[in-house]
Design a protein around this nucleic acid. Structure first.
Lengths: 169, 169
DNA sequence: GAAAATTACTTTAAGCTTAAAATATATTTA
DNA sequence: TAAATATATTTTAAGCTTAAAGTAATTTTC
C-alpha cells in the first residue's frame, strides 16, 4: 500500500535535503570538467610540441601584449596567481633567456619584466599553433553557440564576482 | 579601388593571419577565467572554513558516491589526475583518519579506498555548505541560463573530446 | 603453462602553487 | 620630518601535480 513516512534522522536528511542546489552543482562540475579537459590537452601539446609548460606559456602571453613590460604585481593580478609564484616562474624564464628584468626607473621596489627578442620570437611561433589547437577543440560549436557561450560565461563571471564581494574582497 | 595584395613575409603573417581563430581563443580564455575564479574562491572558503584543501575535498566527494569504495585507478580516471598524485593524496587522508585502504579480495595489486565513518560524516557537513556556496556563486543565472549553459558546455566537452581523438588517445 | 603484455600502484625528480612571514622601498599621517 | 602605513617583491614551508621509471600481480598469447 502507500509508502510509510518514516522520520529521517539527521544524517539521511543531510544527503537528501538540499535538492534545490543540485543543478548549480552539476553546472559547476561540468564547467570544471570542460576547462580541466581542455587545459590538460593544451598542457600536453605544449610539452610535446615545444617542451614548455602552460604557466610559462601563459606568462609569456601576458608579456607579449605589453611591449614595455609589466611589473610582477600587474602580472599577478592578470594571471590570478600569487606573487611568490611569479617570482619563481620569472626566475626560470630569465635563466632560459626568454625574459629580462629591469628595475623600475621610478620605483626601486618594482621591476619591469619583459620578453627578450628571442623570447618574443619563440612565443609567437607557439602562439600561432596554440590558436589553431583552440579553434580545433572548439570546432563543433557554431557561431551562435560561441556567441551564446561567451554571453553566459560573462554572466557567470559577474555573478561569481558579485557573490565574492563581502567576504573580504 | 580594391586593396592591393602586398605579399607578407612569414613573420608578419604569423601575427596577423589567423584572425579567424581569435574568437575561439577569447572564448577559451573566458571559460578558463570563470573556472579559475570560482575554483579559487571555493579553495579559499574550504581552507578558511574547514581547513581542508580542494583536492582532498574532491577526493572525498568521489568516495562519498561510492559506498563500497573505489580503486586508485578508478579515482584517477574520474578525477582526471595522475595515479601518482592520488597515492600521495590518499596517504595523507588515511593518515588523518578520513580514508581507509583495503587490499582488493580479488586482485592483490589493487586496493579499495573508502571513507571512514568519521571521514564521511565530516565530508557531509562540508558538502552541504559547499553546495550553498556554488548556488550563491551562480545565483545571477536564470533557470534558462543554467539550462543553456549546461547544453553548451556539454557540446564543448564533446567537441574537445572529438578533437583529442587521433593524437594518441 | 611459460613468455609476453598489460594493469595497478609507488617512487622519484622537477616544477607549480599557495599562504604567511620577511625585507626593502615608498607614501601618508601626525 | 619622524612614525605609521602601505606597496613590491622574495623567501619559506607545505602541499599539489606531472611524467617517467620502477615494482608487483594479473591476463593474454602462443
Amino acid at each position: 500500500m502507500d509508502e510509510q513516512t518514516i522520520p529521517l534522522d539527521a544524517e539521511t536528511k543531510a544527503v537528501e535535503m538540499p535538492e534545490h542546489h543540485r543543478d548549480e552543482l552539476r553546472l559547476w562540475l561540468r564547467l570544471l570538467t570542460c576547462s580541466t579537459l581542455i587545459e590538460g590537452e593544451i598542457r600536453r601539446r605544449l610539452r610535446d610540441r615545444f617542451d614548455v609548460t602552460l604557466p610559462r606559456f601563459d606568462l609569456m602571453a601576458q608579456l607579449d601584449k605589453a611591449p614595455d613590460g609589466m611589473t610582477l604585481s600587474d602580472l599577478s593580478k592578470r594571471m590570478m596567481v600569487s606573487n611568490g609564484n611569479l617570482t619563481g616562474l620569472v626566475d626560470r624564464l630569465v635563466a632560459s633567456g626568454h625574459l629580462e628584468r629591469r628595475v623600475s626607473a621610478t620605483d626601486r621596489r618594482a621591476q619591469m619584466i619583459s620578453l627578450t627578442p628571442a623570447g618574443r620570437a619563440e612565443f609567437r611561433v607557439m602562439a600561432a599553433e596554440h590558436e589553431g589547437w583552440i579553434a580545433e577543440l572548439f570546432g563543433d560549436l557554431t557561431q551562435k553557440d560561441q556567441k551564446d557561450l561567451m554571453r553566459l560565461l560573462a554572466k557567470t563571471k559577474n555573478s561569481a564576482r558579485r557573490a565574492m564581494m563581502g567576504d573580504s574582497q
